[in-house]
């Protein structure tokens, strides 16, 4: 030893319990033995070439929360649930990741792109508002007009749940 010591690894062993408190079936991550089926079958992995749900579960298990909650990768899940279908140990991978995203959001670790979608939602009531071209085509096809969401009512919900604060800071 040259007098320098490696910093000690800290585990947040309570993190799995916190997950479980929010979502009972989050306890299934205990059974994860890192086979990698989730990553192998993930469509998001195929497109991004780097998204790795297996590693995110390992970080959750070890309670490496600092890294996990600031990771941009937790936002790459498209919630198709293929991983849940395929996991040999019955881990609810994508559902656990949605809880993890909630935790990250509370810490205001939200990527700008996601924030933009959220403010769009707050303003229009749509996460993806219809583009002008679509509206024009609807007219040509003589389809009824799209209903207008009641943004005032929605806003009340946003305020009551604290979503507005999360979005606008």
């Amino acid at each position: 030893m040259l007098g320098r010591r490696l910093p000690k690894t800290e585990f947040d062993l309570e993190f799995r319990k916190k997950l479980e408190e929010h979502f009972h079936e989050a306890r299934t991550i205990n059974y994860c033995f890192q086979c990698g089926t989730c990553t192998g079958c993930c469509p998001s992995t195929k497109i991004t070439g780097r998204y790795n749900p297996r590693l995110l579960i390992e970080s959750a298990l070890l309670g490496l929360t600092e890294d996990l909650l600031s990771s941009p990768d937790i936002w790459l899940c498209v919630a198709c649930h293929t991983c849940i279908e395929r996991c040999p140990q019955g881990v609810k991978v994508s559902e656990v990741l949605s809880i993890i995203r909630n935790f990250a959001t509370r810490k205001n670790n939200v990527p700008e792109g996601v924030k933009a979608i959220a403010s769009q939602f707050v303003e229009t009531g749509f996460t993806i508002p219809a583009a002008a071209a679509i509206l024009k085509r609807r007219q040509e096809m003589k389809l009824p007009e799209l209903p207008k969401p009641n943004t005032e009512e929605i806003m009340k919900i946003f305020e009551a749940t604290g979503f507005l604060k999360l979005v606008r800071g």
């Binding site: 490696l6 910093p7 000690k8 690894t9 890192q34 070890l62 490496l64």
Partner: peptide, 15 residues
């Protein structure tokens, strides 16, 4: 203190 590499995450650990 136990030194090992977590070969899944690649993290060097001192536990």
């Amino acid at each position: 203190v136990a030194y090992l590499e977590n070969t899944i995450t690649g993290q060097i650990m001192a536990i």
